[in-house]
Structure formats: structure tokens, C-alpha cells
């Protein structure tokens, strides 16, 4: 039996067969979505490319300046400060923020009762509007001895701590709030992933004499690695774009200790009205986007082997 079936010729699709096959209605159904995405998502991206090569006042015609905006950004001494602050925020968020949802999810999945209550509680901060959350935390972070956190510390004879008013305390304070605000979403993702771990694996591990930690290490984490790798890269991308916390809590202060890259972008464009430098702002945004794209690509390449399950 050596004869193989003759290669099947791909039928040529004429426009009418394409239409009859549902191609047109697919396209038409897609159209509103494409329009909305194109108009509000992709067009602004294209515009920012164009704008990064221009100087404009948004009234008259823009002037092309080549790579001048990029050069100006690279020559700005604030760039180094902002880059370091962003990396510092991302690092702190990784150390504090990355394990917290995982631990919470593992603990919650082991609960026999009240799982719903706990997952609701964990998710609640995500539902609170970010600006409201920051206002709330500003009360907590009141630096006077009568502030909420300082009162609690006072009970055990500590503090008062200048949470947002000190160059070395400000950034960790922002990270704690950001972790609180974002952990809930990741907890839900992990809880869903934990459900998909086959219970037989735990049973087998138990027969082999594993305790809870060995079960987590040898069963839970390996089973969740794909999702863990994705949340990690999402977190890095997210924290590299941190804006809300430094903007609303400290406006980059004290002494620029919380000025992040995105806050610098904002400052170029709007912060000091005599700057009004939309070209520099878009140039830095593009550099950040490019950097993150490269980082993500490298990350996925390096971890491809691990995520193959």
C-alpha cells in the first residue's frame, strides 16, 4: 500500500463563493469592532508615532523635527531618576506584590467553607475606584501621630512614620497601596487556575507521603506555571507603566523620589504649562513601549521551554 491519495487541490475561491461562504457577513459583523478599535486604539498609536517626530501647538500645522525629541529626552537628567524610580517600583512590586495573590489564592482554595466570602473580600479593592482608594489611603498614610497607620503603630510603641513625606518611605508606601489595589484580580485568576489542577495529583502526592508544602511545591506550582509566567510579565508591564499612585499621592515628590517614567511623560506634556512639549512626551512613551515590547519578547523566548506543558 504505497499509493497515497492525490494531493487535494485547494478549491479556488471566487468572490461569490466567499460571499456565499459567509465571508461578507463576517466582515460586516466585524466592522463596528474594527472601527471602534481603529478609531480609539490604533489611530492614536499611529498618531503618537507621527507626533514624536514633530513639534506642534495643536493649532497650526506641525513642524517636522526628525529625532530631536528623542535626543532631548535622552539628554534630560530627569530621565535617569525616573527610570530608576520605575525599576525600583517594579522591583518592590515584584517582591511584595507578586507572591501575595498566590499565597492568598492557595490558602483560599484550601478552605472548606466561606470560599465565596473570602474571594469577594479579596476582590473588593479592585471594585473600589482607584482615585477613591488613593484618597482613602491618604488618610491611612497621614504622617501625624494621629494618622490611621501611625495610631496603630503607636499601640505597639512604634512610629510615627512619615509615610509619603520622606524620600525613602514614599515609594514603598505607594507599592503597598498598589499591591492592595491590584492583588484581587490576580487572586481570582489563580483561584480559577487552581481548580483546574487534577485532584488525583494531590492524592498521589499524599500517598507518597507529601505534606502541604511539598504538595504546593511539586504539584500546585508546576501545574500553574503557564499562568504564573503570564501574570509575571503582565505585572512587569503594568508596574513599568505606574502612574496613578505617584500622580495622586505625591505628584512625584518628595524631591522627585517617586517621579516615574509615565509621570515624566505627563510632565512633559501637561505638568508645566510652559513646556507643553507633546513631541517629547510621545517620544518617551514610544521608547517605553519599545523597551517593554523587547522585554516581553525576550522573556517569552527564555521561558518558552517552561511553559510547554
Amino acid at each position: 500500500m504505497t499509493s497515497a491519495a492525490p494531493p487535494r487541490r485547494r478549491p479556488r475561491r471566487s468572490p461569490s463563493t466567499w460571499v456565499r461562504g459567509g465571508g461578507l457577513s463576517t466582515l460586516v459583523l466585524l466592522l463596528p469592532m474594527l472601527l471602534v478599535f481603529g478609531l480609539f486604539s490604533w489611530w492614536p498609536i499611529v498618531r503618537s508615532f507621527v507626533m514624536s517626530l514633530q513639534v506642534t501647538n495643536l493649532v497650526g500645522p506641525a513642524e517636522w523635527v526628525g529625532l530631536d525629541n528623542f535626543q532631548a529626552v535622552l539628554a534630560d537628567p530627569m530621565l535617569g531618576t525616573a527610570l530608576w524610580n520605575t525599576v525600583y517600583f517594579a522591583l518592590l512590586a515584584l517582591i511584595f506584590g507578586y507572591p501575595v495573590p498566590l499565597v492568598l489564592a492557595v490558602l483560599m482554595s484550601d478552605l472548606r467553607r466561606g470560599k465565596g466570602v473570602y474571594s469577594t473580600l479579596a476582590y473588593l479593592p479592585v471594585v473600589v475606584p482607584p482615585a477613591v482608594a488613593v484618597l482613602l489611603w491618604k488618610f491611612f498614610y497621614d504622617a501625624s501621630p494621629s494618622g490611621v497607620f501611625n495610631t496603630i503603630l503607636g499601640w505597639v510603641g512604634l512610629g510615627p512614620v512619615p509615610w509619603l513625606e520622606d524620600t525613602s518611605w514614599a515609594m514603598p508606601s505607594l507599592v503597598v497601596e498598589a499591591t492592595w489595589a491590584a492583588a484581587g484580580g490576580t487572586v481570582i485568576i489563580y483561584l480559577a487556575a487552581l481548580v483546574s489542577v487534577p485532584p488525583e495529583l494531590y492524592d498521589a502526592a499524599e500517598i507518597d507521603g507529601s505534606g502541604i508544602w511539598r504538595k504546593i511545591w511539586h504539584v500546585t506550582l508546576p501545574q500553574m506555571r503557564t499562568i504564573l509566567l503570564i501574570t509575571l510579565v503582565l505585572q512587569i508591564i503594568g508596574t513599568a507603566q505606574v502612574f496613578l499612585e505617584p500622580y495622586l499621592f505625591t505628584d512625584g515628590g518628595p524631591d522627585n523620589s517617586t517621579t516615574t517614567l509615565l509621570l515624566l511623560v505627563y510632565d512633559y506634556a501637561f505638568g508645566n504649562s510652559l513646556g507643553g512639549d507633546y513631541g517629547k512626551a510621545t517620544a518617551l512613551s514610544l521608547m517605553l513601549a519599545g523597551g517593554l515590547a523587547i522585554l516581553s519578547a525576550v522573556y517569552f523566548r527564555l521561558t518558552r521551554r517552561w511553559s510547554d506543558s
Binding site: E165, D166, T167, G253, P254, D255, N256
Partner: peptide, 9 residues
């Protein structure tokens, strides 16, 4: 930044 530094450090 100067004022903030003097008042925070």
C-alpha cells in the same frame, strides 16, 4: 524639589 527636600530630610 528643593523645598520638598528641606522639609522631608
Amino acid at each position: 524639589a528643593v523645598v520638598q527636600k528641606v522639609l522631608s530630610d
